[in-house]
């Protein structure tokens, strides 16, 4: 007999339940750590660890939900078109901000890992930490790092940006919602963009395009920076 948790329905049910519970909690308690992504993920990991269920068993169902990430990224193109008129007059400041942000991200993470004396494999794996997971994994394949580590760190960065990004930016004196969206999309890819969408649809559009532009930019520069630091890729 197949155990119930081995069926795809388990992963789907537990994810939906955790998501709905996390959202309900969010409407009751507006505290930064009650971020729906963070809470839902913590609920699920706790449950899986408590009942000794492997990630692979969970992901039999989970993958049906994460599958929709692909069409959702295409949907961001639609959202961007909708808001393009509003962005158009700011396209040059926007591109300047994303390109500077993307280059700073690659350089700062490289310098920090060198400074912290990290093994080469960490530099190779996390240099693309600010871009969306599928692109980051492609970059890690080029730089010959560990794709699994890339995925882990990229998601962690996304959750970090999603949970603390807006509060940190407000604290640093950023008032513009669109600047917040651009920053979230550049530094924290899709998970950050999800938060930018909560700030506002326009903010989400800036975030979505920032994620796309930074993904392309980082793919172009990261492999060369790794060669510069490690000597070979």
């Amino acid at each position: 007999m197949t155990e119930l948790y081995m069926l795809p329905v388990f992963g789907i049910v537990i994810t939906l339940a955790a998501f709905i519970a996390a959202r309900a909690l969010r409407t009751k308690l507006k505290f930064v750590l009650f971020n729906p992504v963070l809470i839902a993920i913590s609920f699920i990991i706790l449950f899986l660890v408590l009942f000794d269920i492997s990630f692979d068993d969970y992901n039999k169902g989970g993958k049906y939900l994460s599958f929709f990430l692909g069409p959702s990224i295409v949907a961001l193109g639609v959202l961007f078109f909708e808001k393009y008129k509003l962005i158009k007059h700011n396209i040059y400041p926007f591109l300047l901000a994303v390109c500077c942000g993307g280059i700073i991200s690659v350089l700062s993470v490289s310098l920090l890992t060198i400074f912290l004396n990290a093994p080469d494999v960490i530099i190779k794996s996390i240099i693309s930490l600010s871009v969306t997971t599928p692109i980051a994994i492609e970059i890690t394949k080029i730089t010959q790092g560990i794709p699994a580590l890339t995925a882990g760190v990229v998601i962690a960065v996304g959750i970090f940006g999603n949970a603390f990004g807006p509060a940190f930016l407000k604290f640093s004196g950023i008032k513009s919602e669109t600047a917040m969206g651009t920053a979230l999309g550049t530094a924290a890819h899709g998970i950050g963009t999800a938060r930018a969408l909560e700030v506002g649809h326009l903010s989400g559009a800036y975030g979505g395009l920032a994620m796309c532009v930074n993904g392309i930019l980082t793919t172009l520069i990261a492999p060369y920076v790794v060669i510069l630091i490690v000597g070979s890729a």
Partner: peptide
């Protein structure tokens, strides 16, 4: 849609 990735 991001939750399963995070659980990873």
């Amino acid at each position: 849609f991001f939750i399963p990735f995070g659980v990873g």
